[in-house]
Simulated scan of single mutants.
Amino acid sequence: MTSCLIVDDSKVVRMVARRILQDLNFSCREAEDGQVALDTCLEEMPDVVLLDWNMPVMSGIDFLRELRKTAGGEKPVVVFCTTENDMAHIREAISAGANEYIMKPFDRAIIEAKFSQVGVL
């Protein structure tokens, strides 16, 4: 089973994403900020990370930069899921190592489409 780490400071967003991803046969873990996410990845690297940008403690972009520097951190497919939709943010995310980008609000069809594009579905 493919594992996904859902990283968002919103409990509601994590719950909605978890429901969609579990329906798509992913095993899911959650983190409420980038630091918790990084600690989780160091324990056990997920196959996919669904990542919010704006979070307390450590932002999504800072988490992504740290993740890509760690051993095995190049492996997970990272899909940003955020309200930040300007080209500067998208370019920054891709250059930091994100594989794809989803705008909030999202639904099952959007997640399915993006996860198919990056080859995890």
Rank of each mutant, 00 (worst) to 15 (best):
T2I: 14
S3F: 00
S3N: 13
L5Y: 01
L5M: 10
I6Y: 08
V7W: 12
V7I: 12
V7D: 09
D8Y: 07
D9T: 06
D9Y: 11
S10L: 08
S10V: 13
S10Y: 12
V12Q: 08
V13Q: 14
R14G: 09
M15V: 07
M15N: 14
V16T: 11
V16A: 08
V16G: 06
A17Q: 08
A17L: 06
A17M: 05
R18M: 07
R18F: 02
I20W: 04
Q22I: 02
L24M: 15
L24Q: 10
N25R: 11
S27K: 11
C28I: 00
C28L: 03
R29V: 08
E30L: 07
E30H: 07
E30V: 00
E30I: 02
A31V: 01
A31R: 06
E32H: 11
D33L: 02
G34A: 05
G34R: 06
Q35L: 09
Q35M: 06
A37E: 04
L38W: 06
L38G: 09
D39E: 15
D39V: 06
D39W: 03
T40S: 15
T40P: 02
C41Y: 04
L42Q: 15
L42H: 11
E43Y: 03
E44H: 01
M45P: 10
M45Y: 10
P46N: 04
P46D: 07
D47I: 05
V48A: 10
L50Q: 04
L51F: 09
L51P: 04
D52A: 07
D52Q: 09
N54H: 06
P56K: 06
P56T: 04
M58K: 02
S59H: 13
L64E: 09
R65I: 10
R65H: 15
R65D: 11
L67F: 04
L67C: 11
L67H: 12
R68V: 13
T70D: 00
G72E: 08
K75C: 01
V77K: 14
V78H: 03
V78N: 03
V78G: 10
V79L: 02
C81M: 13
T82P: 02
T83Y: 00
E84D: 12
N85F: 00
D86I: 09
M87S: 15
I90C: 11
R91N: 12
A93N: 09
A93F: 07
I94Y: 13
S95W: 00
A98N: 10
E100F: 12
E100W: 12
E100R: 14
I102R: 00
M103L: 13
M103W: 00
K104G: 07
P105Y: 14
F106M: 13
A109V: 09
A109I: 08
A109N: 11
I110W: 00
I111R: 02
I111V: 14
I111N: 00
I111P: 01
A113K: 13
K114H: 10
F115T: 02
V118N: 03
V120H: 05
V120K: 07
